[in-house]
Design a protein around this nucleic acid. Structure first.
Lengths: 386, 386
DNA sequence: GTGAAAGCGCTAACAT
DNA sequence: ATGTTAGCGCTTTCAC
């Protein structure tokens, strides 16, 4: 006489196969499978977790083989119409949920994609992730999101986690301090496609999505010049990032085109942290001589710190100081005056990157890498027009 | 890349067994099996994807059994020191990466936790997710993040994805339109612990983390009263959310304590979208008579839209209109004047929620549910002090 | 059209 | 201390 370890019922118990040499029981009332463990009865509770129906359960209920069930579930052609309907109905009845883990194991394909970003606090990456995720979901892929916190070490750890989880592909925007790429090459070595976006790796020949930073900067600075500013400084990003160079070059090119010069002390690089931005702004705004009358900032958060500091110092924007940022953060609209900035097609970056990645996955890396350069757009607000 | 010999389609092709030494394909579109005419049979199959080393590879290389390898890898006590070293070294040499999928299948434990949030654009949820993820990572768990986009239907789909992936637990903040909870109860039924935060479900008896909204609102409104505002309106959230009621009640209680009344037309509920916020603000600010001299808003994004609109209409904040928000969004610091708001311990919410969830997982749901109510804090900036 | 059996990579009970 | 064996839930081959 066996009692259900959950409800104590006796009559609702049936035997249900043998698991690891032990008789398994099933309580019809509780819909619960369990195994009695004479030696340590308290342990028995460990297997209380309600059993999820498997194809074997369906097969047993219908008295057919599990292969047939599997076939029925997959619209395989070699299957009797009636059998298929029976299986489908029973599956619904037993609330069958295919175990994706098992499927992944046998297909050696996890249907999961990894994304590594430096952070996701500042709207920029979240928006990209959202767009990418949408594409992935539609294609039946899950997404694991990792933050590197701008640390190369964490980035490496992230890459390892994704590898261990056998992701089918990875989307990466590198940290500002990444200078060795072994952890990315590991993916290549295992045939796992990788696509970079925004902060890309030159050394790896793979698909990439980026915004034409050079052109965007050029437009930004040209706009400042056309608004009548003459002494235009630049707060740039860390030199380890490709985009820092591209944006710097666009800035220099625009100045050159209009015959303006930029002294070395008009260019300050910061690490993109809030503190770094404030320091850079402080340096520029407290210059004894040759204080700039405009600043082109590497991104909006930096530009916003600059405006805040100017406000605090009583320097009027845009009259005494023109400011242009980069990325069109929602904050750009909130701050007063509104921040003129270069808008990036954020959602498109995410979407395209994921599409390129899925393509790589499907072609098993045999298609040529594609590098997409997206066009930025100048959005004029109050901070640059006097 | 294989094309269907009938329709020419590429993506609908799957491999389907090997017939007489030749790869057979199946076109889902045409429901057709076919074999390519001249294809080198063994070659095509062998060169799929770089093989990842398994414990069997290590075992073979060392001429021992795979169980020994497994034991060596897990610091099992019953293992010869020398063997262990050999295994470890060989593992390194062959660049062995344990297959977590296989491990999960065996342990019926995926070491993955699902998080469902309405969105992650507005700093609030990203911050919570970050904190939660940090705790999870430390405990060796991965995290799958899902966005419901404030849609109950999507939320259901999210829940299903997490179930299919056999997550070990879920963290949920509900959509504003969730009113049936079957999809959450499914987790319970399968013994998968669930913890709610911020937007919680009253109907399910499980651990929850929330902020004392009532008290926060009370503090906010009391502050407005003490600043001399007399006619205080409220823009609330959707009535389906618990927090809407709590914040509304805090508002009403504060008014009552100080003998102030609130006409029904001084309370407007909006759906938390940008548009909804602007509409609500518009209604309040264009009132012909009895226009409020202060507004307590259900959250910061709404408050910011209100300030923006006031700015546009030439209504001066805080002189003619006091404003207090809720949540201390980074924008609150950026806007001019700075937005007085109720700060929520965002990171703590995330951390505590994940800790409670891990606890549930470890105790297999046998521990009593815990409901944590965190204390909010008033942050006074320019928008409420005249 | 269906069933039996192998195997994806791993763990663990049991045997030695 | 180590090997053997039986699965985890599923797909796919092969035989009938």
């Amino acid at each position: 006489m066996v009692r259900c370890i959950h409800c104590g019922e006796v009559h609702a118990i049936t035997r249900s196969g043998i698991v690891r040499g032990k008789q398994r029981y099933y309580c019809k009332d509780c819909k619960l499978y369990f195994i009695l463990k004479e030696e340590a009865p308290s342990q028995a509770i460990a297997s209380v977790r309600p059993h999820m129906t498997t194809i074997v359960d369906i097969a047993k209920a219908l008295n057919i083989s599990k292969s047939t069930v599997s076939r029925a579930l997959h619209e395989h052609s070699d299957i009797n119409e009636q059998t298929r309907n029976d299986v489908l109905e029973m599956a619904r009845k037993l609330d069958y949920q295919p175990n994706l883990l098992a499927k992944s194991l046998v297909n050696s394909k996890s249907n999961t994609i990894g994304i590594i970003v430096p952070e996701f606090l500042t709207y920029f990456f979240p928006t990209i992730i959202m767009a990418a995720q949408e594409v992935a979901t539609k294609a039946g892929y899950n997404v694991i999101i990792c933050q590197s916190h701008e640390s190369r070490k964490t980035e490496k750890a992230n890459a390892n986690v994704l590898l261990l989880n056998r992701v089918d592909g990875v989307l990466v925007s590198m940290t500002r301090e990444t200078n060795s790429f072994e952890h990315f090459k590991t993916f290549e070595r295992h045939g796992i496609p990788i696509v970079f976006f925004n902060r890309v790796c030159e050394e790896i020949n793979t698909s990439k999505v980026l915004v034409d930073d050079y052109k965007g900067s050029f437009m930004a600075v040209e706009h400042l010049i056309q608004s009548g500013y003459k002494n235009i400084a630049h707060i740039g990003g860390p030199l380890s990032l490709q985009l820092t160079h591209n944006r710097l070059n666009g800035y220099l090119a625009a100045l050159k085109k209009y015959g303006l010069a930029s002294g070395k002390d008009q260019i300050i690089h910061c690490d993109l942290s809030k503190k770094g931005a404030i320091n850079a702004a402080e340096t520029l705004l407290t210059k004894k001589r040759n204080r700039p009358d405009a600043v082109f900032c590497v991104n909006d958060p930096v530009a916003i710190q600059l405006i805040m500091l100017a406000r605090k110092k009583g320097i009027r924007v845009p009259r005494e100081l023109g400011v242009v940022g980069f990325s069109d953060d929602p904050m750009a609209e909130i701050i007063d005056p509104g921040l003129t900035t270069i808008q990036q097609p954020v959602s498109i970056i995410g979407r395209e990157a994921m599409e390129l990645l899925l393509r790589s996955i499907q072609t098993e890396g045999k298609a040529e890498p594609i590098v997409r350069s997206l066009k930025p757009k100048l959005v004029i607000r109050g901070s640059s027009v006097r």
